[in-house]
Amino acid sequence: MNQYGMLSQLLDVVMALLLAPLLTGWLNQWRALLQNRSAPDLIQPYKVLHKLFFKESVIADHASPLFRMVPYLVFGCMTLASAIIPMLSTDLPLAPAADAIALVGLFAIARTFISLAAMDIGTAFGSLGARREMLIGFLAEPALLTVLFTSSLITRSTSLTSMVTSMSHNSFAIYPSLAFAGIAFVMVSLAENARIPVDNPATHLELTMIHEALILEYSGRHLALMEWAASLKLFAYSCIGLAIFFPWGVSTSASPLALMMALPVLVVKLAIGGALVAVIETLSAKMRIFRVPEFLATAFMLAVMGMLVHFLLGA
C-alpha cells in the first residue's frame, strides 16, 4: 500500500459513482435505438437524479425509522462493493477486507434491507415485491457464488484482486468451465439487475413488477439514492463480469500512467457490454413470474456444471 494505492482506491470509487448513471443512460439509448424509438438523452439519468434530490420526500404516516435508513444503507453497500471490485487496478488497499464471498454477502445485505423496507409500509404491492425479490435472490445468490467459485478454483484464490491478477497473467486460454460460468453469470446479472426477461425496468404499475414494486413508496431524495444504488449495482455487476471473464487491460500496479491506460479500456469494454445487454433485452420477451425460478435454476445448474467441467477437464 502506498499513496498511489490510496489514489487508485479513491479513483475506483469516484469513477464508479460518476459513471454508473452513464452506463444506465447508454443502455437505454441502445434499447431505444434497437426498438426504433427516439432515444432519451445520454445524460438523462443524471437529470433525473438531480430533479429527485431537489424534491421533497413524501413518506407514509406509519413508516418506521428502518424505512428512512434503508436508502442510505443500500447506497453505502453498493459504494463499498464498487470499492472492492478491481475495475481499473488490482492494487486496492480496501480489497483484503472483503473477498468474493463477502462481496456476495454485501449484495445480500442490500437485497435484504430493500425487501424489509418494502414490507415496512404494509401495502399489498410492497410485500409482493419483497417476496419476489427474495425469491430471485435465493436462487441468484448461490448461482453467483458458484460462478465465483469456479474462477476461484482456477486461480486458487477467492480474493478478487488475486483472481484478476492471475487471470490476466495467464496467456490467452479458453477455459471450458468459464464458458458455462459465463452464461450463468449473464443470466444471474439480468435477474439481479431487474432486466428483461426477468423484470422490466421501463415499466411501472404492472402486476409483474419486482424492482419497481420494492421502491414504490419512496420519493424525493430517498428514491434518488435507490435509483443511483440500482445503477451502481448494474455497474458493479458489469465490472465483476469484465474482471473475471475479460481481465485484460486492468492494471496490476497503481501508477498514474497505468491507471490512465486502464480507464479507456474499461470504458470501451463497458460500452460494448452495455450494448450487448440491450441486444439481449430487445431480443427476449419478459417471462411469466412463475417461469423465473426455472430460468434461475438453469443458471445455477450451468454454474455447477461449470465447476464439474473444471474438475473433469482440469481447466
Binding site: E56, S57, I59, A60, H62, E217, R221
Partner: peptide, 12 residues
C-alpha cells in the same frame, strides 16, 4: 440539497 420531509397516507 435539503432535508424536507412530508408524511402522508401510503401511495401504493
Amino acid at each position: 440539497y435539503h432535508g424536507r420531509l412530508r408524511r402522508s397516507a401510503p401511495w401504493d
